[in-house]
Design a binder for these strands. Sequence first.
DNA 1: CATGGGGGCTACAGCGACTGTAGGTTCAAG
DNA 2: CTTGAACCTACAGTCGCTGTAGCCCCCATG
Lengths: 157, 157
Amino acid sequence: MSTTTDAARPASLSIGALAGRSGCKRQTIRWYEEIGMLPEAARTEGGHRVYGPQHLARLEFIRHARGLGFPLDDIRTLLDLSGQPGRSCDEVHEIGARLLDAVDARMRRLAAVREELHRIVASCTTGGPAASCRILDALADHHHDGCAAQSDTGAVG
Amino acid sequence: MSTTTDAARPASLSIGALAGRSGCKRQTIRWYEEIGMLPEAARTEGGHRVYGPQHLARLEFIRHARGLGFPLDDIRTLLDLSGQPGRSCDEVHEIGARLLDAVDARMRRLAAVREELHRIVASCTTGGPAASCRILDALADHHHDGCAAQSDTGAVG
DNA sequence: CATGGGGGCTACAGCGACTGTAGGTTCAAG
DNA sequence: CTTGAACCTACAGTCGCTGTAGCCCCCATG
């Protein structure tokens, strides 16, 4: 184990190195700093940001939580809570449970959409003229909806 | 069946009436017009928009397709294609199939996220101090990821 | 005919969570 | 010392809306 320049856990990182290790883009890191998700980085004399291992850990936490669908506000709360270890973890649990409910709801909705979409796409025999296209029929026909038009599937295409 | 003022399919609609019938908000309708998803409405002398049944049909098409997760650009294409019925429906089919793929991918990812989230939340016994909270442990620990951090779960909470 | 209020109008800012660009500066390797 | 990659700031754009401010129109009632 070396002292100052450990390749695995270096004591100081440029924004590019931090980006490489965390999987975030440089812009995203700067933006996280701007909105207060990351503490302000130290600077070199020339103004370049300098990060330490604690920034990497925090960024990994954020990224992992983001990957699970937590909104940044919740992540901020989680980070605050983990910073004051005396507090009850009820709030943490509640955030997780709330997100789990939201994920479940989203999955149900997505499943319904998938079914309709599958039915619509399967009903269309390719090659015909658009005039007789059942996909267009199905989209134009709002009557046997089943699931339509509450939004919140998320942008997908 | 009356002639000019059929309650079910009126010959002309204010933006509010169109909003009520289509389920879109007035702002959304104006915005759709602004970005060319809807043709410009006729106006009264005082400048109020006046819509006909064709606007309602188009808006219903848009709303249904949006409900299925189609992005507006795809919907525009679909609407263009349905306006030129001679063209092959291959392109329509391709858009639908592409969306179906995206929905499938999103469902798989969401299922993986749900599992991890469930595991994390279930591992946490409420009531303890945040210092020993397994949710925070799990989020801080990026090593047994399984699914993490590729984005695209969609904002959920 | 006046008035009140509900709906309409435009224009623009904001959301979430970034991404991309332009134009300039710094750093480190050769 | 030179070069060019990496960095800096600031700001616009993405997607699909939503909300606000401040004014105007239209119709029904008195």
